[in-house]
Design a protein around this nucleic acid. Structure first.
Lengths: 129, 129
DNA sequence: CATAGTGTTATAGTTAAGTATAACAGTATG
DNA sequence: CATACTGTTATACTTAACTATAACACTATG
């Protein structure tokens, strides 16, 4: 996990997304306990309630279950559910906008593959479109 | 412009982004007036102050200039500035995360090209990775 | 059964985002 | 010069996100 927060989204939602990423990446396997609320709060210097809120969202989504006195655990089947749900959400909601953006910015496949590498030279005086 | 708002980002920032998109798409050309604060507020049923806040951000970023009594206008050179700035921002900040996400979700180029089309069949019982 | 871990709830305060209403200020036009 | 457009500022209020502090509830372990 990264130590930094984005100002573009509430912390609790970023937290939720990070746990999801950890499950998808296999960093957290089914049955594993999530890092404890208090630990996360301390490590990232965030309020315990904020962490709880992010975790609770995962409970509501049924990817995680909470056992009092024990911790919060990745539910069995979570990874596949997640793959399905997040795939659909990504393809339906995010990807179309990303595509539009790429086109808008006139980015070529090379630009995307080279990462933030070099800048390509425009063909002529006027920018395209 | 779309009539709907996202709950993932403040309205004023979404508004800013829409104007940027309109400039990049050539819907708004340099020297053109933006839709007036009051009009936008009325049409999208949003508070004028919220609209102003989005517009002000564009003024601060130097893409738009405001003339009292006349309106807000796209500054000359805005489009190229925008292309440069937004390209860099996209490649540096957004694209890497998008790539990570695509890989995390195990999405293939076909998935991305087919849009929200059909679901591909997993090769075997266990999902990949 | 005390201790040190878990999650959970309660109370109270701050800040940013958004709203509602109204007034002020400048420009073009009939 | 009245009118109808522009942007701008002021006041006051609501809500969501986040924080600070503390207490409560449960479980495993020595």
């Amino acid at each position: 996990m990264d130590r930094e927060w984005n100002d573009k989204q509430p912390i609790y939602r970023q937290l939720r997304d990070r746990v999801v990423a950890m499950i998808l990446d296999g960093v957290l396997n089914e049955g594993d306990p999530l890092p404890s609320v208090r630990n996360v709060a301390a490590e990232y210097r965030v309020n315990p309630l904020t962490v709880l809120k992010g975790y609770q969202q995962l409970v509501d989504e049924d990817f995680v279950e909470s056992r009092r006195g024990l911790g919060m655990f990745v539910k069995t089947g979570a990874r596949n559910l997640l793959l399905q749900g997040e795939r659909q959400k990504f393809l339906a909601e995010e990807w179309p906008q990303i595509q539009a953006n790429i086109q808008r910015l006139g980015l070529t496949p090379e630009d995307l593959l080279n990462g933030a590498g070099k800048r390509r030279a425009p063909k002529s005086g006027k920018e395209e479109r």
